[in-house]
Write a protein that binds this DNA or RNA. Sequence first.
DNA 1: TTTTATTGATTGAACATTCAATAAAAAAAT
DNA 2: ATTTTTTTATTGAATGTTCAATCAATAAAA
Lengths: 210, 210
Amino acid sequence: MPKVGMEPIRRQQLIKATMAAIDDVGLADATVMRIARHAGVSAGIISHYFGGKDGLMEATMRQILNDLGDAVSARRQALSTSSPRAHLEAIIDGNFDRSQVTGPVAKTWLAFWASSMHQPQLQRLQNVNDRRLYANLCHQFRFLMPREQARDAARALAAMIDGLWLRGALTPEGLDSDRARRLARDYLDQLLRTQDARTPRPSHEPQPES
Amino acid sequence: MPKVGMEPIRRQQLIKATMAAIDDVGLADATVMRIARHAGVSAGIISHYFGGKDGLMEATMRQILNDLGDAVSARRQALSTSSPRAHLEAIIDGNFDRSQVTGPVAKTWLAFWASSMHQPQLQRLQNVNDRRLYANLCHQFRFLMPREQARDAARALAAMIDGLWLRGALTPEGLDSDRARRLARDYLDQLLRTQDARTPRPSHEPQPES
DNA sequence: TTTTATTGATTGAACATTCAATAAAAAAAT
DNA sequence: ATTTTTTTATTGAATGTTCAATCAATAAAA
């Protein structure tokens, strides 16, 4: 089997095996041996390709966050409009993308989230991601309302999205992504409807009268 | 030092030390020796009073959830009205009670939440608590809207509350409980305003419950 | 023959738990 | 009141386990 160019293959294999192991037994019991067995390789290979267990964990979290970012970006770039509402909906949909909410990914995400509180490496990744979601939301809301109000809207919608993820990751049945998306969109509707009532629609796109 | 009646004192001491240790270094590095040192006792005492590390962890989580439940109950019982809105506000306030959102408690809570995915003992406690929050919210919303709508409102408000907690536990500055409470209350206002627009407000105050 | 990829036994560190030993307080006896 | 005995609380060294990391050995491909 030893061919040249194994590195990218093995890295991917091991990252996937890490998520599977965490999904199975949790982060605390996801030992290098268990992960290696999941990938069908020996334990030593992890240190060889990732420099150690920590390196593998960081690479795994990085992949999850990258995939999440890609899912959001893809949906936003597919939009033909620049309507803030459409972009906000795309951000919501991207966060509940199918590929992100399946068992292994969701559980791994939550496990990393918790452990990022005390692991500087993971905390950095976490913060970048958190801020990106908040900044994206805030930027779109700014088209529709004053600064402070936009900030609160972004904070609240971000909390709603994360809360739905969190509760979905914990329920035995897993996250019902259709329902989660619907609840988040309903909330967005309410935020924008509230706004309509207060400001006599400043700019951007034509909106229905209430 | 050895007096009679040490048990309740030591148990409390050790539970508090557990939260402090988890706040300091995270669940993964909260060893029995570190916890014991925090409490100023020897490691062996943990097995003596809690049967082992697992017992201490379970007792700690149970205490956090009990305190949270008590904070909610106290606020609801202090109400003179049976207005659903007042009860919903009390539930929100109780969840953002000062004593619950300080550093050690919040971090411990999140750490347990993550690990409850794979520890049956903790999962049981977690589920009981989750369902209680959802059921309480749902019951109050039922006074104000049809069943399915009440369920969605309860799901969404629960997600909002948990999301605010989660984001608060992760930010270095800690949870801004006043802001969190305000955002959650604003959301409740929106939910009820939406409702008012649809149903021509039937009876203002429902009958008191058990 | 050389290079690249992989193995798996070994090593040393960290850990939870146990338990015989100890010490203080309480109770009993003097 | 003083001494002795019993009970309760606590210690910390010893034990056995688990783990991540290492590295010399091996095997396939170039």
